[in-house]
Write a protein that binds this DNA or RNA. Structure first.
Lengths: 153, 153
DNA sequence: CTTGATATGTTATATTGTAACGACTATCAA
DNA sequence: TTGATAGTCGTTACAATATAACATATCAAG
């Protein structure tokens, strides 16, 4: 799990973009300038960002659809995730792997950690099967306090 | 679990409102006319409704804050839940019990079932403890197809 | 009845997200 | 090369969701 500990940012950014690049080449997807730039922005900040916040960083008088299109592309192809609870987006911490993550969201500092999720395997999966519901995608978002914010309080 | 099967609606509404009434009395909360009406609306429809949809049903030229305030009250006190993924609200299926539910959301017909959640107990809970994150609340929303919509497809 | 807390009505505005359309670009096949 | 096609982008306008702020009204306790 990639969590709240500090770490080497520049490495994150480099591997994140490289992974997206590689995966796009092999899948025939186009990692265009705007898309790459938005991914970099998410990786640099390394936290959940709203679409309009990304838009500001893009500058150049970019309009909402520009940000939303790039973000949609990144989310659809697994390079970023949408955090429903925050109406925000965050770079994926495990680019390339096929996964349905869970998130730990700190309500103090808005940091977001990505954890492996097995929502469809546990009792929720059982309950779903029992009533004949077919789960396609699961959103798991836990809100609480990260270690730093617990200390601060 | 309360799911996709058909059932006696009027019973739902009666018990839902009664439970809220009882719980408010014992907790010193005020289930005012608007709040009661909004709860009834959610119970009648028995599906996730947007705040503006509730507002329309309220009629009488009600303005957004009226709906949001009532919904906030109901959510805060456990009589309704917010479905992040849909920006919508649904009456609680287990009024009175203290619980952190998971939801099964059908993308075909927008029906929502409430299932017991144990997000903080399973591996997510372990992962959180491991990094020192204290979970306060968990949102679990699974998107997929309910039995009826699977048949239709 | 007064007081303090809570709830409501109202206006205005903030935030988040899309529809629609025309122009441009990459790719591929004839 | 040319044209066909699908995907992408810039732009305008707007839709949908949510909240701030402030005046008024209501309730419950002393």
């Amino acid at each position: 799990m990639i969590g709240f500990e500090t770490h080497d940012h520049s490495h994150c950014i480099a591997t994140g973009v490289a992974a997206a690049d590689a995966r796009c080449r092999e899948a025939g997807l186009r990692l265009t300038e705007t898309r790459r730039r938005v991914l970099e922005i998410l990786l640099e900040r390394h936290r959940a960002m709203g679409a309009y916040e990304v838009l500001e960083v893009l500058g150049k008088g970019a309009k909402p659809p520009t940000a939303y299109r790039a973000l949609d592309f990144l989310v659809k192809n697994g390079f970023a995730h949408r955090i429903e609870r925050l109406n925000a987006f965050i770079a994926c911490a495990h680019p390339g792997e096929d996964h349905a993550p869970a998130f730990l969201i700190c309500r103090g500092c808005d940091a977001v950690a990505e954890a492996p999720s097995e929502a469809t395997k546990g009792r929720l999966g059982e309950a779903a099967r029992k009533v004949g519901f077919r789960i396609e995608r699961a959103v798991v978002e836990a809100v609480g306090l990260c270690p730093k914010c617990q200390d601060a309080a």
